Amino acid sequence: MDLFMVKMVTAEELFRKIKAEQAFVVVDVRAEDKYNQFHIEANTVEDINMPKTEIFTLEDEVEKVIPQLPQNREMIITCTTGNSATKCANILSTKGYDVTVLEGGITAWKEYISKESIERIWSEFKNVHPDAPEHYEAWSFGNSKQMADELAELVVEGTKTATSSNYLLYELEDELLPMVGLHNIILDGNGIAVAVVENVSVEVMPFNEVTEEHAYREGEGDRSLPYWQEVHKEFFANELKEVKQEFHYEMLVVCETFKLLYKN
């Protein structure tokens, strides 16, 4: 196959096209399960999941085209990092398709939209609170997209006003503990900023001394202390296993309470 110099578009350029409500087609060549987990969506964008293996079959077919793909519209081809998309774009170019590759793929796109959302929510927050400090931290809860989404939603609705973390990990990673007054930008499971909170208290205590009040403020499940102990024992045990440590009820926990200052 002769290689063409395919057009490239950066995540920032693509974001601007979407903001300008330009109409085009995004063809995501990742496997269906990856596509269903996350893909590019916008009102003016038609998104198509076309696994790369289907496009690869065109390589040695002189006349064959794929009916699902429009030949008279601009198509942005994307994959996880851009490599497979580039190969697919070269094949489609030989068939007369108008194709452009998303540079860096979905990985670059997610990084960009996360960064953009963080900067945007902080700018909006600073417009309302001009005396707020310049420093903030941005992070998501838990260790999965589902957990991050669920807990971020609890923050936005005002149910969750506390969190807890493993003190040992701060020591092992030589990180400073959270401080009272620290502003945090809460991210959802896709890394999108949804809220700004401020720490109002930070305490370090053994796992078995965490209070019913703190468990209630964490807002999860039935908000009881037994529920908090059950889910956090499992969560902390998994974290400790990764650093070759074992869970025990005297392990130190960093308990933070915060107040919601701003939300999308």
Rank of each mutant, 00 (worst) to 15 (best):
G96D: 08
I91G: 03
A108M: 05
R120L: 13
V128L: 09
K95F: 03
N127P: 00
A108P: 02
E111V: 01
T100Q: 01
L92C: 09
W139P: 00
G104V: 10
F141E: 08
S117G: 09
S140G: 15
S114P: 04
E111R: 13
W109N: 04
K95W: 05
I118V: 15
I91V: 14
V99D: 10
V101T: 03
V128Q: 14
V99Y: 06
V99R: 06
S123N: 13
I118E: 10
S117P: 10
Y112P: 10
S123I: 00
T94D: 13
G105Y: 04
R120M: 11
Y97I: 08
G96Q: 08
A108C: 04
W122C: 06
F125S: 05
K126R: 15
E124M: 09
S93P: 00
S117Q: 09
K110C: 11
G104T: 08
P133E: 05
Y112C: 12
V99C: 15
I91C: 02
D98L: 11
K115V: 08
N127I: 02
T107V: 14
E137P: 00
E134M: 11
F125G: 03
E119G: 06
W122Q: 07
P133Y: 05
S93V: 08
H129C: 09
S123W: 02
G105I: 04
S140Q: 11
N127E: 14
W109D: 03
G105A: 03
G104A: 09
V128C: 02
F125R: 02
V128M: 06
P130T: 11
T94P: 00
P130V: 08
Y136W: 05
S123Q: 15
A108N: 05
P130S: 10
E134L: 13
F125C: 04
K126G: 07
E103G: 00
A132K: 01
A108S: 15
E137D: 12
T107Q: 14
G96L: 05
T94G: 12
K126D: 05
Y97V: 10
E134Y: 07
A138C: 03
I106A: 09
E119F: 00
S114N: 01
R120G: 00
I121R: 10
I113R: 14
I113S: 09
A132P: 02
K95Q: 11
W109R: 01
H135Q: 11
S93T: 15
K110Y: 01
W122G: 07
K115H: 12
E116I: 10
G105C: 05
H135R: 08
W109K: 02
T100V: 13
I91F: 04
F141Q: 09
W139R: 07
I106Q: 12
H129V: 12
A132M: 06
G105L: 05
K126I: 11
Y97P: 08
T100S: 06
H129N: 13
E119I: 01
E124N: 13
T100K: 02
W122T: 07
T107I: 11
D98A: 12
I118F: 00
E119M: 09
W122Y: 15
P133K: 02
I113W: 04
I121T: 13
A138M: 04
A108T: 05
L92H: 10
F125E: 02
